Simulated scan of single mutants.
Amino acid sequence: MIQIKMGARQPPKEFAAISCSTRFLGWALRDWVAALLCAIGHRDPNPTAACGSVIWSMSSMKRCLAAFAIAASLFVPVTHANDALEAKVRAYVPVVSLAKVCDLRINDATSGDHRAMLEAVKSDPNANKLAYRLHYETQTAYIKARDGGQRVAFCKDFIAANSQYAKARFTAVVEDHMSDVSTSVQKAIAHNVCGAPPVKLSKADWKPYAQIKKMLQIEHKLAKENAETNGWNVTEETTAVTEQFCAAIKTR
């Protein structure tokens, strides 16, 4: 089962109003800058707020002109960048682009390569143009799936295709917690939540067992609240949490 925590974090509010192409394309640039220049290097849960964006400080007319200039540039054929750099751009840009909306945790190796890639892109116009284009296309695909009621499936498939670079955040959190508890606690959780065979717990195991169960309850609550707030399918969102939780336990 592919692990994906759906609904624990809200996507940017701008996603809700993509009927205005100017606003969406303006946002595409803003989120590209925030995601690729800030998300990896900042601990702020809202990197776009931490870094800001030039385009949103412009007048309405300037934003309009800038957005359509961006739109035009996205669809101009891109001359090949350096092959090695192009490969990294194609690998890392989509993953970072969806890190927030699909709640991904990017692994350390990818984070380091991504930072180096950003530096190289600055001096390669072709790679820079390719990066903008890939970000736009990735976000467009996500929005189409989300608006069609396929958000959970889309993110599951995306993580499966990019599992060497990132995994669902909650899966990583669960795996970290599982490494700190006994095998008996892991088996007890697997029984209680995932339908595995029963196991007896010692007195010392009850506290960590209760803590992990509490963590799962909190994540379910967050998934339900975010689904209700954003108009997503509540059952799909909460079920995805359980699936991710159980998949993480099975990897231990």
Rank of each mutant, 00 (worst) to 15 (best):
I2C: 08
I4C: 08
K5I: 11
G7I: 01
G7D: 06
A8L: 15
P12M: 14
E14G: 04
F15S: 00
A17I: 04
I18R: 14
C20R: 10
R23Y: 03
G26R: 12
A28R: 10
L29G: 14
R30T: 13
D31C: 04
V33I: 15
A34F: 08
L37E: 11
I40A: 11
H42I: 09
H42K: 10
P45F: 12
N46M: 12
P47I: 00
P47F: 02
S53G: 09
V54T: 10
W56L: 13
M61P: 08
M61T: 14
R63S: 09
A69H: 13
A69W: 14
A71E: 07
A72D: 13
A72I: 11
P77H: 07
E86A: 05
A87T: 09
K88V: 02
K88D: 10
R90L: 09
A91N: 00
Y92K: 02
V96W: 13
S97M: 02
K100I: 13
L104Q: 05
L104N: 05
R105V: 02
R105A: 15
N107D: 11
A109F: 01
A109W: 01
R115Y: 06
R115T: 05
R115I: 01
A116D: 03
E119R: 12
V121C: 03
K122P: 02
S123A: 08
S123P: 00
S123Q: 07
D124L: 02
P125A: 01
N126T: 02
A127D: 07
K129Q: 15
L130T: 00
L130F: 01
L130Q: 00
A131V: 00
R133K: 12
L134Q: 09
L134D: 12
H135I: 03
T138S: 07
Q139E: 15
A141E: 13
A141D: 13
Y142S: 03
I143S: 04
R146A: 07
D147E: 13
G148E: 01
R151N: 09
R151A: 12
R151E: 15
R151V: 05
V152T: 13
A153Y: 03
I159H: 03
I159E: 04
A161M: 04
Q164G: 01
Y165N: 07
K167C: 10
R169F: 14
F170W: 08
V181W: 01
V181Y: 01
V181P: 00
S182Q: 01
V185T: 06
Q186W: 04
K187R: 12
K187L: 12
A188T: 04
A190M: 12
A190H: 10
A190F: 11
N192T: 15
C194M: 07
C194A: 07
A196R: 04
P198H: 10
L201Y: 05
S202P: 01
A204N: 04
P208N: 00
A210V: 05
Q211G: 05
I212Y: 10
I212G: 04
K213D: 10
Q217L: 12
Q217P: 08
Q217W: 05
Q217N: 14
E219V: 11
L222C: 05
T235R: 15
E237I: 08
V241K: 02
F245L: 10
F245Q: 02
C246Y: 07
C246S: 03
A247G: 12
A247D: 10
A248P: 06
I249A: 09
T251Q: 08
